[in-house]
Nucleic acid binder design. Structure first.
Lengths: 336, 336
DNA sequence: CCTATTTATCGAATCGTTTCAAAATCCTGC
DNA sequence: GCAGGATTTTGAAACGATTCGATAAATAGG
């Protein structure tokens, strides 16, 4: 099998501890001995066992980023932010999925202390597990919920305000009958968006229609189907506020199919400002937030090693494009 | 600190080995003792150390997926394919970046045997390292190059043929002066695409123009800039074959800005069939390949545990949309 | 009732490193 | 040439689980 430090020691004619020091480039070891050790190590193709090292040091030098669904387009920028900061600290980063509940890789890694810290997004890891494992040697940052506890930090986004802004924008443009295209009702993010939507309507003296249910996952096809159902109804709204861009795009497709004009007949505003937004017809008005920053800040928070849970709130911006019927782009921060 | 198996043993009044057996639900242990042990474990909030387990078992039960850039939109479906198959084997999956060469997480994980197998995509992990570490207990699948060795498998895609098909399609539609928008010249994928392009031109008796260099990374903005340079030249081509969709989309944007009509003036064909393709104006004709399948098959290959390196070749398909001037969609397999 | 057999538990060795404290070796100045 | 300090090297004890073989306890058969 693979050579161990013992084999190297034997071949180099020194003690095991000497090899260890040499491999770690300790100044205690003379240059000559180091050379001998390196030569032996190379000859045996020696590679130190991470498992043994981790066990002895009780550290893994690795941070975990736990996401529900690794494939999601939304995540990629968050990942980049995390990656960058983790690397700048000289740590390793592993990204893994929380899909599968108790049996997910993420779950196991948290329990078995495979990582020295975690950034968690997209639920499916319970609050209680997080509170159970968070500690000085295992700080945790959650991105998708408010959770207080020692060594548990939050990075949140002003989703409620963002939704408020989106809907206010629609109202300002003269829309009165604005429906909400909802994501999964259990989602914290979704309910914030709904609250903002509701508050905006109420503040402007409009009555709040009943929620539109959505079909399947919170994706393009869900928006498509929801819009189809809506279009089959009697009273069409004059605007739709969608809990995310994917669904908004699906809704636009559904409307295009039956000849409903966006934005002339119905205005649409999405949420998240995904890359696709500027490319659809009409280009999607949406609420943006800086995903890279979320990742980067979350990671910094994790490394800050404070006991008391910190909570950071990041802003959203209205990104005006065409789908709401207001052509002059005010602050289109993602023109491709 | 965290409780160890020893503490549990003491509290439960049994031997360490008994706790171990109990925690692993061995039938050797009586139900009563198990209950005692579980109670003690819960009370101490005991969580077994993965590092210790890995060391003793010399297995991590984890597969690594090593990508250059975790954020890439292209990867997400590959990741899903891998994730699914890995999970179906009851293994953990970690995704990590090869960015940073010797210091990348991926590099360290390979050396330190943090994973029991690896799927590698996007170079930056050298052939020699792969050959060095591949073994019966560490099978490797590479997705981006041809590499032969024991326990090293390849999953390749008929990129050359795909490019040939794309260019032939353009020629069939009457285009004669077809330029190539190149990705990084060092890339294996890119050179296959170039070869297919060249062969198609030659087979049809057309002369091969000199390559268009590209600017920056192989992204939308690279295509945009390259097209700008091209448009500034005297002799415009009547078609562009782009090494990937992102650059094709950038090129289309550049042309739209100066009033060059796609596809009337210049036809454009991309490569990869990314999600964005159907949404741009005009919808992008491209060469598709099944990314999910690549991931799934690669993973199966990895678990197959064969010594002799296997090589699997997956096909590409021409996806006709509008950007090449042929409206009737023949086999648009990604209508959203 | 005693041996034979099964069933439960235990002790100790082990996985491959790190690291402390002790031992060995090397200097340096007198 | 040697005491005493600095420098190198070493041995052994961890780290926290698993697992083999041995022991102890329970059950069964005659």
């Amino acid at each position: 099998m693979a050579a161990t430090i013992k084999d190297v020691a034997k071949l180099a004619g020194v003690a095991v501890s000497t090899v260890s020091y040499a491999m770690n480039n300790s100044p205690k070891i003379s240059e000559e001995t180091k050379r001998k050790v390196f030569r032996a190590a190379k000859e045996l193709n020696f590679r130190p066992s991470g498992a043994a090292r981790n066990l002895k040091k009780r550290k893994t030098h690795t941070i975990g980023l736990f996401l529900y669904d690794l494939g999601g387009p939304f995540y990629s920028q968050v990942i980049e932010g995390v990656q960058e900061v983790v690397a700048s600290h000289g740590f390793n980063l592993v990204v893994c999925s929380t899909y599968g509940g108790e049996n997910s890789s993420a779950h196991r890694f948290m329990l078995e202390q495979f990582v020295d810290g975690a950034i968690i997004m997209g639920s499916s890891i319970s609050d209680s597990l997080i509170l159970q494992v968070a500690s000085e040697s295992f700080p945790i940052v959650v991105l998708d919920r408010e959770l207080k506890g020692d060594y548990v930090h939050n990075v949140l986004i002003t989703y409620e305000q963002g939704a408020y802004d989106a809907v206010s924008h629609l109202i300002k443009l003269g829309r009165r009958k604005i429906e909400f295209l909802s994501g999964p009702v259990t989602s914290f993010d979704n309910s914030l968006r709904y609250n903002g939507y509701k508050r905006a309507l109420e503040d402007h003296g409009l009555k709040v229609p009943k929620k539109i249910s959505m079909f399947g996952r919170c994706l393009e096809v869900g928006g498509y189907q929801a819009a189809k159902v809506m279009l089959a109804g009697s009273q069409l709204p004059d605007a739709i506020f969608s809990a995310n861009d994917e669904m908004a795009i699906g809704a636009i497709r559904a409307m295009a199919e039956v000849g409903v004009q966006v934005p002339d007949d119905i205005a649409v505003v999405g949420f998240d400002n995904i890359n696709l937004g500027p490319y659809v017809t009409p280009p999607l008005t949406t609420i943006g937030h800086s995903k890279y920053e979320v990742g980067a800040i979350a990671t910094q928070l994790m490394f800050s090693a404070q006991r008391e849970g910190n909570s950071i709130l990041l802003p959203t911006q209205l990104v005006v494009r065409n789908s709401c019927g207001f052509k002059d782009s005010v602050n289109d921060f993602h023109t491709p």
